[in-house]
Computed example of a mutant assay.
Amino acid sequence: MNGGSGASQMTIEKLVGTNYQYWRLCMEAYLQGQDLWDLVTGDETLPDDTPQLVDARRKWKIKSGKTLFALRTSINKEYIDHVRKLDSPKKIRDTLERLFTQKKYNATAIP
């Protein structure tokens, strides 16, 4: 992933499955640097739909779009279908976390 507009150039290796832990670390650092990480953790949520919060909602939607773009463009095409229709950065993070860290059920390990 390349930074733009005078920012230092940054490249994040695409998520290909076997590199999930490394990808997650790099993506977290990148999104923190862009002030977008709170959308991924769910700490920053869409403000209520009230006339007083119209500007805050607009800004959140822009930040969410940037975050979704960063996440989706850093995922290899063989895994993109898992997150293609998800509409929030947190949902993408949660889905990838389940997909790549889920322990396989092993019936022989249970007494």
Rank of each mutant, 00 (worst) to 15 (best):
V16R: 08
L25H: 11
Y22T: 15
K63I: 05
E97R: 08
K61Y: 02
K85S: 06
S74C: 13
L99P: 02
Y79I: 05
D48H: 14
L25G: 06
T73A: 10
Q34V: 04
L71I: 09
V83N: 00
D55S: 13
D48P: 06
K103D: 13
K14W: 10
A107H: 11
L31F: 03
I110K: 06
P111Q: 12
D35A: 15
T41S: 04
Q32R: 13
I12F: 03
V83A: 00
M10L: 14
P47V: 10
K85W: 06
I62A: 07
K85H: 06
R57C: 11
K61C: 12
K14A: 13
D81G: 04
D94I: 01
R84C: 04
M10T: 15
E44T: 08
T18P: 13
Y105F: 09
Q102L: 15
R98T: 04
R57H: 14
K104W: 05
G42D: 07
H82R: 11
Y79L: 14
R84Y: 07
R98N: 12
Y30A: 15
V83I: 10
D81S: 12
A7Q: 07
A70T: 10
Q52S: 11
I110T: 04
I92F: 10
K90Q: 11
P51H: 02
V83Q: 00
T11V: 06
A56E: 13
R72I: 06
R58E: 15
G17D: 03
L71E: 02
C26H: 09
D43W: 12
D43Y: 15
M27N: 00
L25D: 12
P111Y: 15
G6Q: 02
